[in-house]
Design a protein around this nucleic acid. Structure first.
Length: 741
RNA sequence: GCGAGAGUGGCGGAACUGGCAGACGCGCCGGAUUUAGGAUCCGGUGGGGAAACUCAUGGGGGUUCAAAUCCCCCCUCUCGCACCA
C-alpha cells in the first residue's frame, strides 16, 4: 500500500498536470476503501437490534475453523455471503449477519505439540488474525455477537446439551472400535490413518480396538431426518440426495434362525424375504458376536475371521475384494422348511449394516451367487420372472442371475404369489410364529461423540463406584478444561493424566469418584451454534426460546459442500431434539442452503499444505479489496469449483478503473441531469444509455436472486462498456476536430 | 455397482419459459502512448470461404417452422456412497 509501489493506486491528479494522463488514472482503493469501512462501522450498519424481528433475514456462513491465515479460497465463502447480506439490506430486510469460531479440534492440539505452545493461545491468536482479515475484506458483520466454541461461556452450553440428551436417553455409553497405533499408543482420527492403514506419524499399521465411548442416538430420529428433507426445498438437490443416501432407509424383514443343536438364535435382515425358500446358507460378518461361540476352539476359522475383519475395517480398496469365506461347521434351522443350512463366515458381509448376518439366496442375488459358485454351495431358484426381457437380470462371470421381481415357486404355501405378496405374507406368518417380523433398516449409525483428546469440551460425566455413571449437575457447569496439561499423545485423553481434574466427589453420594476424561466431537459444538448468536453472552441459558423462534430458521446458510452430510445432519438432529423439548418451534434449522465451490490453483484445492494459496493481504495491497471481491464474484458459477487466475484479477482491476474514470469524467453530469426534467425528445445516445441501464438492472436483480454473481458482474461490465462508448461518441460530437487541452 | 451433476472457441464461462450460439473476462492480433519493454488506453478476435454464404454446442438418431436447450441410444469426465443383504 506504499506510494512507491508503481502498481499502487495512484493519487488522483484532477488537474491533469502531466504526472498521470487521465486515461491512466487509477482507482485509489487505499484511500476509499478504509474510509467506507470506517463509515459502516460508525453507522453500526451491521449491528442488529434483535427486539424487532419482522422482515428479518438471518444469513449465516458456516463458522470457520481458526486455522490461521485465510487465503482467497476462504474469501470466496464470505464474499458471497456478504453479497447476499448487502442485497437483503438494500431491499430493506432486517439483516442478521454474525461470525463465530469453530475453535476446538485436533489441529490446535497438533500445532501445540509441534510449536510447544498451548492450543488456546494458538487458537486465540489465529482468531485475532482472521478477524482482521475479515475486516480487510470488508465483510459486514455484527462483531458484538462473536462466539468461539472453545470459550467456557460457550462450551458450558455444549455440555448442557449433552446432559439434556442424556436425560432423554439420547446419549448412551457403548463399545466402539477406534483406530489405534500400537507404537504411538494413541487413538487416531480417520484422517490420521494414511496409505494402506498406517499411522500418519510413525508408519506402523493401525489396528482396531474396542473402547467404551459415548454415543448420541441419532438413529432414533432417522425417520424424521429423512422425511423432513422434503421440507428443504431451498436446499441443493445434491445435498438432499446425499443425506437421503446417508440415512439409507430400506424396508425388509428380520428372520430368526435357530442354531442346530443349540439354544442360540441368529437374526438376519433381508429385503427379499420372498426368496427365503431359495436360501441355501447363512453368512455372518467376521466380527459378528456369534462367531466366537459358534467356532469355539476352532483356531483356524477364528484367525480367518480376525484377518478378514481387519481388512474390512481398512476399506481402502478400489474394487471389491475377492469373496472369501469359511464354514463354521454349524447349521441353522430354516424357519419355513425346517431344513438345516450351513452357517458361514465371509468377508462380504459387514457388521455395520442390518444385523451383520444374512440369508443367502444364490439364485437371486449376485453376491451370493458368486460366493456359492466359488464354494460349490447349492443354488435353488424360487422366483420366476413375470415378464420376458432383460429386466431384472444381472450377469455374474458370464452367468445370468435373476434378481428382479416376479412370482414365487417351490415355496410351500406361498407358490404362485407375486414376490411382493410373498414378502408380506411371509412376514406376517413369521410374526405370528415369533420367528421374525417386517422391519425397517437404516444405514445411519449412532453418532460417536467421544474423543480421546484434550482440545474439546469435556464430557460432563462422573463415574462413581457406588452410583455408577452420574451426570455432572447443571449448576456445576461448565466442567472447565484445565490449562496446564501434557499434550504428548498417550492413548487416552491428556486429561486422564491430570489428577486434579480426574478426582472428584460423586454428586450423589459424596464419595471419591472419577471424571470422564474424553472430550466431545467438535461436531457437537457446531450442531447448535446458530442458536447462540442471539444471546451470545447469556450465562443463564443456552439460547432464548422467544428470540430464537423469532429469528430462526436461518434464512440463508452458506458453506462448503464438504459439510453436506455430517454437520448438516447433526444440526438438523439437534434442532429436532430441541423441538421435542419445546425449546424451539421449528423443526429445521436452515431454510435455504447454498454450497459454494472451492478455489483451485493448478487444478487442486487451495490450501496451506499444498502451498498454492494466494494471500489476500498482498492482493489487497496491490489492487484493493474491491478488485479481489469483484474478481471472486466473477470467477465462475459460485456453486462450482473455480481456478484462480492472476490475469483474471487484473481484468477485474481494469474494470474498476474503468468505472472510476467514467465516474470522474462524467459523474457531475449524471448528478446534474438527475435533477433536470426529462427532455421531451431524447437523443439517440440518451436512449441507448437508458436502455442499457434498465437491462443491466433487470439482469443484475435476477442474477442476484439466483446466486449468479458471475453473470451479474458481467452485466455491469456490459453497462460500463456501453457508457464508455456513449461518452466517447458525445465527446466526438461536441468537439469535432478540436482536441481538448 | 448405485445416485447426482457436467460435456459449448485457445481458456474460464454466457444463452431467462425451445427463438440471432459464443454475453462478460482471460489470452491472442492490430493501433495509440513509450527510447525500448512492461503497464495503460482504443479496436478486432469460433472454423472454412474472395464473397454471397457455409459448418459448428461430446457422438449418433428423432420431434419441431426453429434444438446447446425436448425425446431415445452411446461415449467421456467430476463428485458422493459403496459387498446396503
Amino acid at each position: 500500500m506504499t506510494r512507491s509501489d508503481p502498481r499502487a493506486p495512484a493519487p488522483p491528479s484532477p488537474a491533469g498536470d502531466g504526472t498521470a494522463r487521465p486515461d491512466e488514472e487509477r482507482y485509489p482503493a487505499a484511500l476509499i476503501e478504509p474510509k467506507w469501512r470506517k463509515r459502516w462501522d460508525e453507522l453500526g450498519l451491521f449491528r442488529q437490534d434483535i427486539t424487532h424481528a419482522e422482515n428479518k433475514f438471518y444469513c449465516l456462513n458456516m463458522f470457520p475453523y481458526p486455522s490461521g491465515d485465510l487465503h482467497v479460497g476462504h474469501g470466496r465463502n464470505y464474499i458471497l455471503g456478504d453479497a447476499v447480506v448487502r442485497q437483503a439490506m438494500l431491499r430493506g430486510r432486517r439483516v442478521f449477519a454474525v461470525m463465530g469460531w469453530d475453535a476446538f479440534g485436533l489441529p490446535a492440539e497438533n500445532a501445540a505439540i509441534q510449536n510447544k505452545t498451548h492450543p488456546e493461545k494458538w487458537t486465540l491468536r489465529n482468531i485475532e488474525r482472521m478477524r482482521q482479515q475479515f475486516d480487510a475484506w470488508g465483510i459486514g458483520l455484527d462483531w458484538s455477537r462473536e462466539i468461539a466454541s472453545c470459550h467456557p461461556g460457550y462450551y458450558k452450553w455444549t455440555q448442557w446439551l449433552f446432559l439434556k440428551l442424556y436425560e432423554r436417553g439420547l446419549a448412551y455409553r457403548g463399545k466402539a472400535p477406534v483406530n489405534w497405533c500400537p507404537s504411538c499408543q494413541t487413538v487416531l482420527a480417520n484422517e490420521q490413518v494414511v496409505g494402506a492403514g498406517e499411522c500418519e506419524r510413525c508408519g506402523t499399521p493401525v489396528i482396531q480396538r474396542e473402547l467404551e465411548q459415548w454415543f448420541f442416538r441419532i438413529t432414533a430420529y432417522a425417520e424424521r431426518l429423512l422425511n423432513d428433507l422434503s421440507l428443504l426445498t431451498d436446499w441443493p438437490e445434491k445435498v438432499r440426495v446425499m443425506q437421503h443416501n446417508w440415512i439409507g432407509r430400506s424396508e425388509g424383514a428380520e428372520v430368526h434362525w435357530r442354531v442346530d443343536g443349540s439354544r442360540d438364535e441368529l437374526i438376519t435382515f433381508t429385503t427379499r424375504l420372498d426368496t427365503i425358500y431359495g436360501a441355501t446358507f447363512l453368512v455372518l460378518a467376521p466380527n459378528h458376536p456369534a462367531v466366537e461361540s459358534l467356532t469355539a476352539g476352532n483356531q483356524e476359522i477364528q484367525a480367518f475371521a480376525a484377518r478378514v475383519a481387519r481388512q474390512q475395517s481398512d476399506r481402502r480398496y478400489d474394487q471389491e475384494p475377492e469373496k472369501e469365506g469359511m464354514a463354521t461347521g454349524k447349521s441353522a434351522i430354516h424357519p419355513f422348511t425346517g431344513a438345516k443350512i450351513p452357517i458361514w463366515v465371509a468377508n462380504y458381509v459387514v457388521m455395520g449394516y442390518g444385523t451383520g448376518a444374512v440369508q443367502c439366496v444364490p439364485a437371486h442375488d449376485t453376491r451370493d451367487y458368486e460366493f456359492a459358485k466359488k464354494y460349490a454351495l447349492p443354488i435353488v431358484s424360487v422366483v420366476r420372472p413375470s415378464e420376458t426381457g432383460d429386466e431384472g437380470w444381472e450377469t455374474v462371470d458370464g452367468d445370468r442371475v435373476f434378481v428382479g421381481e416376479g412370482a414365487v415357486f417351490d415355496s410351500g404355501a406361498y407358490d404362485g404369489l407375486t414376490t411382493e405378496q410373498a414378502r408380506e405374507r411371509m412376514a406376517t406368518d413369521l410374526a405370528t410364529r415369533r420367528l421374525g417380523k417386517a422391519t425397517v433398516q437404516y444405514r445411519l449409525r449412532d453418532w460417536l461423540v467421544s474423543r480421546q483428546r484434550y482440545w474439546g469440551a469435556p464430557i460432563p460425566m462422573i463415574y462413581c463406584d457406588t452410583d455408577g455413571i452420574v451426570p455432572v449437575p447443571e449448576s456445576d457447569l461448565p466442567v472447565v478444561l484445565p490449562q496446564d496439561v501434557e499434550f504428548k499423545p498417550t492413548g487416552e485423553s491428556p486429561l486422564a493424566a491430570k489428577a486434579e481434574f480426574v478426582n472428584v466427589t460423586c454428586p450423589k453420594c459424596g464419595r471419591p469418584a472419577r471424571r470422564e476424561t474424553d472430550t466431545l466431537d467438535t461436531f457437537v459444538d457446531s450442531s447448535w451454534y446458530y442458536l447462540r448468536f442471539l444471546t451470545p453472552r447469556d450465562e443463564t441459558k443456552a439460547f432464548d426460546t422467544a428470540l430464537v423462534n423469532a429469528w430462526l430458521p436461518v434464512d440463508q446458510y452458506i458453506g462448503g459442500v464438504e459439510h453436506a452430510i455430517l454437520h448438516l445432519l447433526y444440526s438438523r438432529f439437534i434442532t429436532k431434539v430441541f423441538y421435542d423439548m419445546k425449546l424451539v418451534s421449528f423443526v429445521e434449522p436452515f431454510r435455504a442452503l447454498f454450497t459454494q465451490g472451492m478455489i483451485t490453483r493448478g487444478g487442486v484445492k487451495m490450501s496451506k499444505s499444498k502451498k498454492n494459496t494466494v494471500a489476500p493481504d498482498e492482493l489487497i495491497a496491490k489492487y484493493g479489496t474491491d478488485t479481489g471481491r469483484v474478481y471472486t464474484m466473477f470467477i465462475g458459477p459460485p456453486e462450482k469449483d473455480a481456478e484462480w487466475s492472476d490475469r483474471g484479477v487484473e481484468g477485474a482491476y481494469r474494470f474498476l478503473n474503468r468505472v472510476w474514470r467514467l465516474g470522474r469524467a462524467h459523474g457531475a453530469l449524471v448528478k446534474e441531469s438527475a435533477s433536470r426534467p426529462q427532455p421531451a425528445i431524447e437523443s439517440a445516445t440518451a436512449r441507448e444509455i437508458r436502455h442499457a441501464a434498465h437491462t443491466a438492472l433487470a439482469r443484475v436483480t435476477r442474477d442476484f436472486n439466483e446466486f449468479h454473481y458471475n453473470t451479474a458482474v458481467a452485466a455491469m461490465m456490459e453497462l460500463v462498456n456501453t457508457l464508455v462508448g456513449a461518452a466517447q461518441k458525445e465527446e466526438a460530437a461536441l468537439a469535432p476536430g478540436a482536441p481538448a487541452s
